[in-house]
C-alpha cells in the first residue's frame, strides 16, 4: 500500500514538473532569444543559449521598430486608466453598499451586466461615438474605454470588500462627527490597501494587454500601443528578422512579468476571484 502510494506521488511529481517546465520554458526562451545575434539564429538550433548579451536587438526594436513610442503610449493609457478606475469605482462601490438610497439594487445589477457582454458588441458604436467626439487617435479615448470595460469587475471587487466592512466602525465615526467624505477618505481608503492593489493589477492587465480597442480606435502610428505595434511589427520585419522581433516581444511582456513577480499574490487572487464571482 505505501509503496504504491509512494509511486503515485513520484509520478504525480514528475507530471507537475513537466507542467512547470512547459509553463515557464517558452517565456525563458523568449527572453534568452532576445539577446541573440542574427548569426546565432541562423547557425545554431533555436534552443541554444545566447552567447552573450547582445543588446542591439533592443536598440533597433526601440528605435527603428518604434517600440519606444508604443511603449510610452501604453504606459500613458495604462496609468491613466489605473488612476481613473480607482477614482470612479471606489466611491461608487461605497455608495452601492454602504449608503442608503433607492436605486441601490438596480444599479448594482446594472453594473454587473458589463460582466456578461462581449466587448465586440459595443465596439462598432464606440468607434462611431469616438468619431463624433473626436476621440479617435487619442490617449483619453483609450483610457476611457479601458476604464469603462474594467468597471464591472472593479465594482464587483470593491463591493465585495465593503460588504465585509463593519457598519459599527462607520457608525462610530459618524457619531464622532465625521462627514461622509471624511469616512471615505480618512477611514475606509486606508483600510482597503489590499483590494486597491488587487484591482490595480487586474486593471493593469486589461489595459496593457488590450489589442481590440487600440487596433480599432487608433490609426496613427504615433499613438499606437505596444500590442498593436507588435502585430504590425511581426508583419513588417518579424518574419525574417528574429532578433528585433524577440526584443519587441520582450518589451511587451516584461512590464507584465515584472509586476507579476512582485505582486503575484494579488494578481492570482484577483483573477481567480474574478472568475469565480463573474
Amino acid at each position: 500500500m505505501t509503496a504504491k502510494k509512494g509511486k503515485g506521488k513520484i509520478i504525480s511529481k514528475i507530471i507537475i514538473g513537466i507542467a512547470l517546465v512547459l509553463s515557464i520554458y517558452p517565456v525563458i526562451w523568449l527572453i534568452l532569444s532576445s539577446f541573440k545575434t542574427t548569426q546565432e539564429f541562423s547557425l545554431l538550433p533555436s534552443y541554444s543559449l545566447p552567447q552573450g548579451l547582445y543588446l542591439d536587438n533592443y536598440i533597433s526594436a526601440w528605435t527603428s521598430g518604434n517600440m519606444g513610442v508604443y511603449f510610452k503610449n501604453s504606459i500613458i493609457c495604462t496609468l491613466g486608466s489605473l488612476i481613473l478606475i480607482v477614482v470612479v469605482a471606489l466611491p461608487a462601490s461605497f455608495a452601492l453598499t454602504k449608503m442608503k438610497w433607492k436605486g441601490k439594487n438596480f444599479f448594482n445589477k446594472y453594473f454587473m451586466m458589463g460582466l456578461m457582454i462581449p466587448i465586440q458588441v459595443a465596439l462598432i458604436p464606440i468607434f462611431q461615438i469616438y468619431k463624433n467626439l473626436n476621440l479617435l487617435n487619442s490617449h483619453i479615448g483609450l483610457i476611457l474605454v479601458y476604464t469603462v470595460f474594467g468597471l464591472s469587475m472593479t465594482i464587483l471587487m470593491f463591493t465585495g470588500f465593503f460588504e465585509s466592512f463593519p457598519n459599527e466602525m462607520l457608525e462610530a465615526a459618524v457619531i464622532d462627527g465625521c462627514s461622509i467624505y471624511g469616512c471615505l477618505t480618512k477611514m475606509v481608503v486606508p483600510l482597503m490597501g489590499n483590494s486597491i492593489v488587487t484591482v490595480l493589477t487586474l486593471q493593469f492587465l486589461t489595459s496593457w494587454n488590450d489589442l481590440l480597442f487600440s487596433q480599432t480606435l487608433i490609426s496613427e502610428t504615433a499613438k499606437k500601443t505596444v500590442q498593436t505595434g507588435l502585430v504590425m511589427f511581426s508583419g513588417a520585419h518579424g518574419q525574417v528578422d528574429w532578433g528585433p522581433m524577440f526584443a519587441s516581444m520582450a518589451i511587451g511582456v516584461l512590464p507584465t512579468l515584472g509586476l507579476y513577480l512582485f505582486l503575484s499574490k494579488f494578481m492570482i487572487q484577483g483573477m481567480t476571484a474574478g472568475a469565480v464571482k463573474g
Binding site: 507542467a19 512547470l20 517565456v27 494587454n209 489589442l211 500590442q227 502585430v231 511587451g252 507579476y260 494578481m267
Partner: peptide
C-alpha cells in the same frame, strides 16, 4: 503555473 495567464495574448 500562473505566468502564462498574465502575459499579453498578442505577445
Amino acid at each position: 503555473m500562473f505566468i502564462p495567464v498574465v502575459l499579453p495574448s498578442v505577445a
